[in-house]
């Protein structure tokens, strides 16, 4: 393996790679944001909603979590089209990832909320807080601290899952890498490099999560 030759090729390929990284980051960011937003709603419904709604949401999370992400991606791209919802590969991919993300975040949020002792709610009620206030100042902040490590994990999973969008033709980092390989035949080098880039993104997410965790840690 000739390093300087690879670096030359890499330099020439900088534009498609950077574009690929950009698309991967946008997919991940959008999927994580939408998925988290939806996931918090799912988590709240799983914890506090009355029976019929709760069952529906429970069915949703169980179904999504039991389905491979790739199947979700393919379904969102090919199946939704047949029922008239014609999404481009980028939108379809983000929809699939966001839905996947929401079911995981929903479970994480439910777990965190249910692990808070009942006495917390009772103490909040006893000083006259309404439920929205109790959630905003007592339950939410405690749940947030619990959710964080698992949420960071899910976020990193989403970055990895974004590679699946290459299958429906979204030109993210993996697809760009494969295109470069098919032209240069330097598969080992380019896969390594792509792997390194994914690692860097996830490492950054993890460091950021740790940082926030430390910031909001409760002294004891």
């Amino acid at each position: 393996m000739d390093i300087s030759h690879f670096l030359d090729v890499l330099w020439l390929a900088r534009s498609p790679i950077l574009k690929g990284v950009g698309v991967t980051l946008s997919i991940s960011l959008l999927a994580i944001c939408c998925g988290t937003l939806l996931g918090v709603i799912v988590g709240l419904a799983l914890t506090y909603a009355k029976a019929p709604l709760r069952w529906i949401v429970r069915g949703y999370t169980d179904f999504i979590r039991g389905t491979p992400v790739l199947v979700l991606v393919l379904a969102s791209y090919y199946v939704l089209g047949t029922i008239g919802l014609d999404l481009g590969p980028f939108q379809a991919g983000i929809l699939a990832l966001a839905v996947f993300c929401s079911s995981h975040v929903g479970e994480i949020v439910r777990g965190a909320l249910q692990s808070i002792p009942k006495g917390q709610t009772e103490a909040a009620k006893a000083i006259g807080l309404t439920f929205p206030q109790t959630f905003a100042y007592v339950l939410g902040p405690q749940a947030l601290r619990q959710v964080l490590p698992a949420w960071v994990n899910t976020a990193a999973e989403m970055v990895k899952a974004s590679t699946l969008l290459s299958i429906i033709g979204v030109a993210e980092l993996l697809l760009r890498t494969q295109e470069l390989i098919s032209r240069s035949f330097m598969s080992l080098e380019f896969y390594f490099f792509a792997g390194f880039l994914y690692f860097t993104i996830n490492y950054a997410i993890e460091r950021f999560g740790r940082y926030v965790e430390r910031k909001i840690a409760v002294p004891s």
């Binding site: 002792p117 006495g119 917390q120 009772e122 103490a123 909040a124 009620k125 006893a126 000083i127 006259g128 100042y137 007592v138 902040p141 405690q142 601290r145 409760v218």
Partner: peptide, 17 residues
């Protein structure tokens, strides 16, 4: 109405955060 009474609990139930 709950604010008309104050309550202290066996398990204290302070808000830990």
């Amino acid at each position: 109405q709950r604010a008309l009474t104050g309550m202290a609990f066996q398990q204290f139930n302070l808000f830990p955060h």
